[in-house]
């Protein structure tokens, strides 16, 4: 947890602690943590992504032959260029630099960075599911066009959003600055009293005119400042990334999941193409040349050893001491062995 340090005694200026290997970083209510990262999409509607572009599925491909193979890569949910901010358990929210609006807000936790930052001992990201996981209860989600209005006109009608940046106050609370067309606005988000599922949005405009907010929220507009008390309700619950995989008995399917979770594919292809480690396609049962001129049969025992103690023997053509040892449970190792066996005919 991020703790506070009194940097300048007597001045009351608070300084944040740095990020650590803790995959559950948290800010404090008075001093938030601001993280730019890939941000999870809790299921926002398509209209919210008006200034994003749509990806498509794409044929799977192997660099071995330079051709497509069976299957398609599917795009996954995630937000590429948002800023996630956490005020401790009181409030988390995501502000998007592309749409220039609050995307969603949640309470009771922040982000589980494990899929992206990986296990501290290995630093391995999950290969196809590395978007951080939400922790807490989502209580507000954006929908439709941005709710902010200037003199009764929705900001989206003023022009395209253009993100400028943010300023931090003495407590590190960001005020986001952006434009719609030529009109400049700012937004500050803060926890709102002790009520659950709420936060306070403070909008300012540099253009003359009255700011308004579409919707049922309680708003106050005074001298160019619009305060919106956003009170939501529990929309979805999230408990981070499930770390533990219960394996009753070893299976190739469990092995495939472990293979993805540990990011093994970063070095070991499953289609026979070269990489930083040997391909696993067709490996099982083969005679494998080793550094030093000997060979070994790639059987269960060799695969087990190669996972638990990868530097005991090095496959020919690959550098020594390159793969870290994976101290997995026996059922996990056996599952990986079964998965590698299943690749024998590829």
């Amino acid at each position: 947890m991020r703790r506070l340090l009194i940097l300048l005694a007597g001045c009351g200026v608070l300084d944040a602690s740095p990020l650590t290997l803790d995959n559950l970083p948290l800010g404090e209510e008075a001093r938030p943590l601001l993280l730019r990262t890939y941000v999870p999409d809790p299921g926002l509607s398509k209209e919210v992504f008006a200034h994003h572009h749509d990806a498509d599925s794409s044929p799977k491909y192997t660099p071995k032959t330079g051709r497509d193979i069976k299957g398609r890569y599917q795009p996954i949910p995630g937000i590429p260029a948002a800023v996630a901010v956490n005020h401790g358990p009181a409030l988390s929210y995501a502000f998007d630099t592309t749409e220039c609006r609050l995307l969603y807000a949640w309470q009771g936790g922040f982000l589980d960075m494990f899929p992206y930052w990986g296990d501290p001992d290995r630093g391995n990201r999950r290969s196809f599911g590395y978007v951080p996981s939400l922790v807490g209860t989502v209580f507000h989600q954006a929908s439709g066009a941005p709710p902010l209005e200037l003199d009764g006109r929705p900001v989206a009608e003023l022009g395209d959003p253009d993100y400028l940046g943010y300023d931090l106050d003495e407590q590190g609370v960001p005020t986001f600055r952006y434009r719609f067309g030529e009109h400049r606005f700012s937004l500050r988000v803060a926890p709102l009293d002790d009520r659950p599922f709420s936060c306070r949005l403070t909008f300012r405009s540099e253009s003359p005119g009255r700011l308004g907010y579409r919707g049922q929220e309680e708003t106050v507009f005074d001298r160019g400042v619009l305060v919106v008390n956003l009170r939501g309700k529990a929309l979805s619950e999230h408990s981070g990334f499930p770390r533990k995989m219960a394996i009753d008995r070893p299976t190739a399917a469990a092995g495939e999941t472990l293979f993805a979770n540990y990011g093994c594919i970063a070095c070991h292809s499953t289609d026979g193409s070269d990489g930083h480690g040997p391909s696993l396609a067709g490996l099982f049962g083969k005679e494998r040349p080793l550094t030093g001129g000997t060979t070994v049969k790639a059987d269960d025992a060799y695969l087990r050893e190669s996972i638990k103690d990868p530097n005991a023997r090095t496959a020919e053509g690959f550098p020594p001491n390159y793969m870290p040892p994976y101290p997995l449970k026996d059922k996990e190792v056996e599952s990986l062995v079964l998965f590698i066996k299943s690749l024998r005919d590829r």
């Binding site: 572009h53 949910p77 590429p80 290969s127």
Partner: peptide
């Protein structure tokens, strides 16, 4: 060894998506 998101920042090209 990783995907794209459903919504990308900037234009998307299906030919650009091909390959290793």
């Amino acid at each position: 060894n990783g995907p794209t998101f459903e919504h990308t920042l900037g234009d998307y090209s299906k030919f650009g998506r091909r390959g290793r």
